[in-house]
Nucleic acid binder design. Structure first.
Lengths: 182, 182
DNA sequence: ACCTGAACACCGTTCAAGT
DNA sequence: ACCTGAACACCGTTCAAGT
């Protein structure tokens, strides 16, 4: 990549992260280009679809979540490890509100720019789920896709301003449902 | 209301229900007016904000849900009654996909056209929740707003095409979380 | 190679002009 | 009273013209 292109690319990502944090994942692309001081066509050259931009923004976070899952694998309680990771994943999604919808859609669409990233993330969660299931901490009638679905529901709840006072409690209720009943 | 106005009003509602069923709650208002064979200004005269139109569409369903809650009050198992009502409510919301977001927002916004309807619906759910709690069938650390939040999460899940194969199972997982642990 | 911005086809919303 | 559709300010997306 040419030096000026690289510079535009990186700057667009910085600005996009900022605007998406403010306005959500469906923020105006025109606005992003404007605030980056770049032509609209330049944004499209680097990120031909909105998903491609989102993927570039989320990849870093997904890598962090995968690393976190690795750490938690070694922790004492398999159940707590799963819950802690889920809490982290919800927080990440909330930093890009509305993105969870694209993520859930991408898991079943191999053509989506987000597909690979989301699969990686699901795999990270699955590893923690499986360990929790083997240790008897998590219910056994769930797979990684179910976990991803519940993550979606939790992230959606966290994105609703009117439910903010209830967000933590609702997290406990749903996350608690994954843990095995005696 | 003048006879011609009444006719436009009712016809707009019929067409809107159709278009919203096809395209979701964020369907194009222009499209609705066009398909109703009516000027765009006429739609706005009858339904000045999208929420007002949505409210008109949903009111009928909400009334049905309230009636259903009344019937279920008399059923044998308080836990099953709550679950059955929740299933019904999710199905209703799914008939207007995307509307659940406005509904959840409206519950905390007295200025919303949907506010009263959503409060009524929450009350219907609350009555079933309270009975289930009193009979020991439901966990006691939840109120009607929590139930409404879970309904939102369930409706959101049902609206995601990629999770369709998992929808019933995820409903059981989340709805099951409301029922009391032994 | 890469960038720009006009152009196109859409929105939601308002409002002067008509009947 | 009520209806109409042009007008305005926005979108996402494409692409000819520039450097």
């Amino acid at each position: 990549m040419r030096a000026d292109a690289r510079k535009n690319h990186d700057h667009l990502l910085d600005v996009a992260r900022e605007v998406v944090a403010e306005q959500g994942a469906d923020a105006s692309l025109r606005d992003i280009a404007r605030r980056a001081g770049v032509g609209l066509g330049t944004l499209y050259r680097h990120f031909p679809r909105r998903e491609v931009l989102l993927e570039a923004l989320l990849r870093v976070r997904f890598d962090e979540l995968t690393a976190k899952a690795g750490e938690l694998q070694g922790s004492a309680s398999a159940g707590e490890a799963l819950t802690a990771w889920l809490r982290e994943a919800v927080a990440v999604a909330h930093g890009y509100s509305g993105a969870i919808e694209s993520m859930v859609a991408a898991i079943a669409d191999p053509d989506s720019a987000l597909h690979a990233s989301c699969q990686t993330m699901r795999a990270a969660g699955t590893s923690l789920l499986v360990r929790a299931q083997e240790s008897g901490a998590a219910r056994k009638d769930m797979d990684g896709t179910d976990l991803f679905g519940l993550l979606g529901a939790l992230a959606w709840l966290r994105d609703q301003p009117s439910l903010a006072p209830k967000a933590d409690h609702l997290f406990d209720v749903i996350a608690g449902a994954i843990l095995a009943r005696e």
